[in-house]
């Protein structure tokens, strides 16, 4: 069995174990309502995590995803307050804005050869500030709570049966992305660009364009999540999404996509997203201080990454030792 399959089994096992423990500790955990709400939470993070998985596969990072959520929800709010346009017109505009932001990130990273994290950290600051500035204000200059009344928009927060639409969209997007990554040339190019950019260029792949495309997709995913978040809250605030990056990063990393690029897939990210959502829900259901959350999330990232690196190092050492021994033996024969 492959390492990633074992990892997924362990994670799934942990998921079930924590689930059982939680349902013993607090019977309301197993209620359908709680489970579906948890899935809804997981899906909101998960949609962003799908885009972020692709970013990590290219060995990049996107710190601006939270701020993209904030700015797209503010774009929607402005349309609601100042135009009579229906939601099916401005929602695509908001999604396009997410793509455009991704394009800017990708352009700076590829054409100016700047480090990914610092570019996206800078755009994060710019977008977070812009979100506050374009937020709709009342006469005193305070941010006004704009309620979403458009039925099309609100339908994004609805359920089909007991399942929230966002969960369905998350699963569909996950399947589509996984299929895209594994079964199209463009997807293969993304893996190649992350694993070995020099070799990818030698094989005729336009690495810069591939990277820009991935950052655009990441922006799109964040914008999509933002629409669902706003529909669920029936309003939008300029703080939406800010600081959520860490949940996303933790979900993707624990799902088995490393920072080194070239490896990873969406299935791992789905399990990782569920895991993080469960942990967060568990902290809530056990009545623990919500401040434990960032400690646990930060801790999970460090422990996962350290364990991965340690394992990889260990495996590589074993492999090179075996290879050397083999080489030596046949050299003796040859000489």
């Amino acid at each position: 069995m492959s390492v990633s399959a074992i990892r997924r089994l362990i994670l799934t096992g942990l998921l079930i174990a924590i689930g059982i423990a939680l349902s013993i500790a607090n019977p309301t955990f197993l209620k359908l309502d709680n489970l579906m709400t948890m899935l809804q939470e997981a899906s909101l993070t998960g949609i962003v995590a799908i885009g972020f998985t692709l970013i990590l596969i290219t060995a990049g990072i996107d710190m601006s995803i939270g701020a993209v959520i904030a700015i797209t929800s503010m774009i929607c709010v402005n349309f609601i307050s100042y135009t009579q346009l229906p939601a099916y017109i401005y929602i695509p505009i908001a999604l396009a804005a997410g793509c455009a932001i991704g394009w800017v990130n990708g352009f700076f990273i590829t054409h100016f050869k700047l480090p990914e994290f610092i570019v996206t950290l800078a755009t994060r600051g710019i977008l977070a500030g812009l979100a506050l500035i374009i937020a709709v204000k009342d006469e005193q200059g305070f941010v006004k709570n704009v309620f979403i009344e458009d039925p099309v928009f609100l339908s994004f927060g609805e359920t089909v049966g007991p399942v929230y639409i966002v969960t369905i969209v998350f699963i569909l997007l996950a399947i589509a992305t996984q299929f895209f990554m594994k079964r199209t040339r463009a997807g293969t190019n993304i893996y190649a660009s992350g694993a070995n950019p020099t070799a990818a260029r030698l094989s005729g792949i336009n690495v810069d364009r591939t990277l820009i495309g991935v950052y655009m997709f990441s922006g799109f995913c964040a914008a999509l999540s933002s629409i669902f978040l706003a529909a669920r809250m029936m309003t939008a605030m300029p703080e939406f999404g800010i600081g959520n990056e860490l949940d996303v990063i933790a979900s993707v990393v624990i799902g088995g996509t490393p920072f080194t690029g070239g490896i990873g897939d969406i299935w791992g990210t789905i399990i990782g997203t569920l895991f993080i959502a469960l942990i967060k829900n568990g902290i809530l259901k056990l009545g623990l201080s919500p401040y434990i959350q960032p400690i646990v999330i930060g801790g999970i990232i460090i422990v996962t990454v350290v364990a991965d690196v340690w394992y990889k190092h260990h495996a590589e050492k074993k492999a090179t030792q075996a290879a050397r021994r083999k080489a030596m033996e046949s050299k003796e024969v040859g000489a």
Partner: peptide, 23 residues
């Protein structure tokens, strides 16, 4: 020692230190 990129380590530290501060 674990060859983890510095920005990941310190970003995770930023998060958990904030949690400890809140706690």
């Amino acid at each position: 020692k674990f060859l983890v990129p510095a920005f990941i380590v310190t970003m995770a530290a930023k998060t958990y230190l904030f949690g400890v501060a809140m706690l």
